[in-house]
Design a binder for these strands. Structure first.
Lengths: 213, 213
DNA sequence: GTCTATAAAGAGATAGAC
DNA sequence: GTCTATCTCTTTATAGAC
């Protein structure tokens, strides 16, 4: 029985190495630009091992997408859990984005590759959509809390404010990837902070304590 | 001489049809997923015509990227030119985005394909970066004008506000492509309007007539 | 300028040995 | 489970006819 577990474990490790190699190559050369042979080779195997563990490239892509989506969803849950104060929340956000800024091109390329794949593969779309909804939901909770802390009413549907904040991540990272000179490393966090401040101001102006939506 | 013009004209038309076919296929199947033969066939030719007009697929991609970039830069210039009132400006923006929303998937996929290609091709990056700078510059002008109209000071560097508004386009379109249920057709325009209103509020609160950065 | 034919390389996938 | 060998199809690119 312990031998069986070892075999399962070995299989799991091989699959993981193949998935990691695929992620690298997809970022570098695109999903279509990376061949099965290149993926297997970077993982330290040959094509035989690949086909022994995956039904084909499409199956691997689908699994990679699921893996990354699940991992990101977990990170969102963790991030939403911690952070008692506003300062803490922003410190965490800053750390998170500094890490991401370090290998922006790689990370963004992979996200966009998987995203394009999902947009073109109807059965995978709900998976991505669910992850995005989750992230926006957590953000909406945070926005509501922050505005509450200031005693301000929410100046618009919190879900819409969260959508704006969330969408800004992709948008600003794209701008930075194209033109690093014009977009600072901390643009995302700076922008979210500015938005929160301005929404607080807007809420104060629109009427204290009013609660729309 | 008129014969020469005719030949030039004919060549130009062929190249344009090839470029248009390539744009369609890149959006549908990705740059790497679309073969030269498929491109030529959709344009109504064979591979021979393709290689008679382009040095290869890479050359066509580079040219497509330049063409699309130039066209978008022109649109930005036109949009920046017209629009006397705020209402006019938003009406134009709304029309523009309604049109874009109609074939969102196609448009976004092509933009992201070209964007990925540019990120991976160092010599093409400045081209894209320039176009983005131009768009942000025009937006910055618009933001400044709108806030001025309200007699409000600009609550932050107008370039940064413009960056936020501009980045939101990509970000929100991505969210809508993944999850149309949760993101309205007019999300982009609605968001920009909300941002303008909240920045006005923030400026009023921070101190009337102050002009930072 | 565009077509047909073809060379040469690369891709995904399977079979059989170990 | 992984490797080597092999099949088949697709791809890029070139040459030569028209």
């Amino acid at each position: 029985m312990s031998e069986r577990l070892t075999r399962q474990e070995s299989r799991r490790r091989t699959r993981e190495r193949l998935l990691a190699a695929a992620a690298e190559l997809f970022a570098e050369r695109g999903v279509n630009g990376a061949s099965v042979e290149q993926i297997a080779e970077r993982a330290g195997f040959t094509r035989g091992a690949f086909y022994g563990n995956f039904d084909g490239k499409d199956a691997l892509v689908a699994e990679l997408l699921q893996e990354r989506t699940r991992r990101e969803a977990e990170e969102v849950r963790e991030a939403a859990g911690g952070a008692a104060s506003r300062a803490e929340a922003f410190a965490a956000l800053r750390a998170w984005h500094r890490e991401r800024a370090r290998n922006l091109d790689t990370w963004l390329a992979l996200r966009m590759e998987l995203l394009l794949h999902a947009v073109r593969t109807p059965e995978l779309r709900p998976l991505l959509a669910e992850r995005e909804r989750l992230a926006r939901g957590a953000l909406a909770e945070g926005v509501r809390r922050e505005l509450d802390r200031d005693g301000a009413a929410t100046p618009a549907d919190p879900a819409f404010l969260a959508l704006i904040a969330h969408a800004l991540e992709d948008g600003l990272l794209i701008q930075r990837a194209l033109d690093p000179e014009s977009v600072g490393e901390e643009a995302v966090v700076d922008a979210v902070e500015l938005l929160l401040r301005s929404w607080t101001a807007l809420a104060g102006e629109t009427g204290e304590g009013e609660a729309p939506g």
